[in-house]
Amino acid sequence: MTEASKNQTLVHYAAQIGDNSLIMGHRMSEWCFHAPSLEMEMALMNCALDLIGQARELYSYAAASDNSDRTEDDFAYLRDEQDFRNALLAELPNGDWGDTIVRLFFISAYNRLFYTALAKSKDSELAAIGAKSLKEVTYHLRFSGEWLIRLGDGTEESHQRVQQSVNNLWMFTGELFTMSEAENALLKDGISVDVATLRADWDQTVSQVFEQATLSIPDNDWAQSGGKTRGHHTEHLGYILADMQFMQRRYPGCEW
């Protein structure tokens, strides 16, 4: 790999991780003013801000590796749907409280393993971002896990509804463990995380919490994918971007 193409791969890699955080953070932020209680509002907004903060750091690093004059904002506001490489799970609508909690749990369980590994990256900047983010996502996992246990092991209705959320979202979890081109390319140098190897630990985290929550793991192994590896998204991402990017598209370069 030439130095230039290696830099370009690093840009893709950092942006790809950032995309997951930004889109997930945006989804969480949609709960603002809609959470069931003030306490949950604060909890979700804290998560949203953690995730958007992670996206900023990753985009800033991508921009710095780019050798162009792009900034973090270019990555968030001026790329199109097919340029985003987030997992489909992150872009799905919030649904009800159970859907939101299950999705946050699935992604946080992944994020905890992912950032633990990224903190050991040979790339010192990514390692630093990994170490900082790990503390944040560990709390997201705790928060969503505790909620999942209470919903699953709660009332008959909460159990039945949150099991339905699990069944609906399950087919989007497999994509988290597929390898993108950038991930494969940077693996040899110890820069990227081999996400395929995280699956076993993720399964274990999920089954531990599910056992307490009296929830069952769907036996459907089929995984929906395409967002992370090819930029083929669900119809939902376009609406998120329209919402998020409108101001920059309508008034290029506008600032607060």
Binding site: S37, E39, M42, A43, N46, F143
Partner: peptide, 16 residues
């Protein structure tokens, strides 16, 4: 704060 049990109260207190 309002919370359904002690553990959740702890988490909400952290967040608030």
């Amino acid at each position: 704060i309002h919370a359904c049990d002690a553990e959740m109260a702890l988490e909400s207190a952290r967040d608030v």
